[in-house]
Design a protein around this nucleic acid. Sequence first.
DNA 1: TATTGTTATACTCTATAACTATA
DNA 2: TATAGTTATAGAGTATAACAATA
Lengths: 160, 160
Amino acid sequence: MAEPLAKPRIVASDETEVDLGDMERSLGFLLRMAQVRVYEQFFRHFDGTAVKPGEFTVLRVIAENPGVRQGSLARVLNIKPAHMTKLVHRLVQSDLIERATPPEDRRAVELRLTAKGSEFVAQHRPDFETVHNAERIGLTRTEERQLLALLHKLAFKDLT
Amino acid sequence: MAEPLAKPRIVASDETEVDLGDMERSLGFLLRMAQVRVYEQFFRHFDGTAVKPGEFTVLRVIAENPGVRQGSLARVLNIKPAHMTKLVHRLVQSDLIERATPPEDRRAVELRLTAKGSEFVAQHRPDFETVHNAERIGLTRTEERQLLALLHKLAFKDLT
DNA sequence: TATTGTTATACTCTATAACTATA
DNA sequence: TATAGTTATAGAGTATAACAATA
């Protein structure tokens, strides 16, 4: 992925300037562009492994909540049940997690990391730390804290 | 300002608590969750039209840069050329943009809004304004400005 | 009847490579 | 040879609806 780095005005390889206009103040657009940058960091660290951002998130939340229900996980992470089924199957086939049916509700599926899954998470967790990403991408610690707090509010604040 | 990180624990509809752990401080995760929220606003406003976020962004950048090359647009917006071809075809078929081959380089494709496209952008631009999104989602004007500035830096700052 | 998860389908976005037509 | 764009193919994410098993 050797795309040119975008700036307020961008000089493409053909020297053409493209003015983003009001899009530069568009929250949705900036969120997307920022995410592309951060994901590039992710893929740099996870190069070689077959695990993708969403999958690593799922692994970490399972690590934090052993035995969590598949449906609870889907709701919390904004993943549709149908997609969660496929995602879980991939992680099971990679021997990173295991499924179990709780006796008290045999419709449900509980998820836990396997030994290999625990090892995988422990091994890659440091690479995933925000500090790492934010610093490499050019934010100071103060800016990083501000950004995380604002994103958190944006993502989770109750709208009543 | 170092903000209080709201609700470390999330209560799903079945009363099951899921602890997101360190993910709550993960830049990539928060970017994604925030984006989901903001996109919900987008779809609320654009309900009924068949235009999606990426398409509306393309329309606005073409509006700002009449005759922009298809490839320049792809580079600036981090859209792959193959995908841009399909996206442009959809917009042409919707009669929102038109393609032209410049005589000085007959390999290239220049893009311009049609009258219908100009009208569409003019009509929906207000709905797309950041203020609208940010306020409805619970950020103050000050917070919004901070967030946009930080995201801009994250998205566009040169890494040298 | 309602809920948990699965299957099936479809469409978007992303990624890659092979291809054309121009330069 | 290199560049601009296209076509083809594949995988991942998202959305919806119909379905089975269980509550």
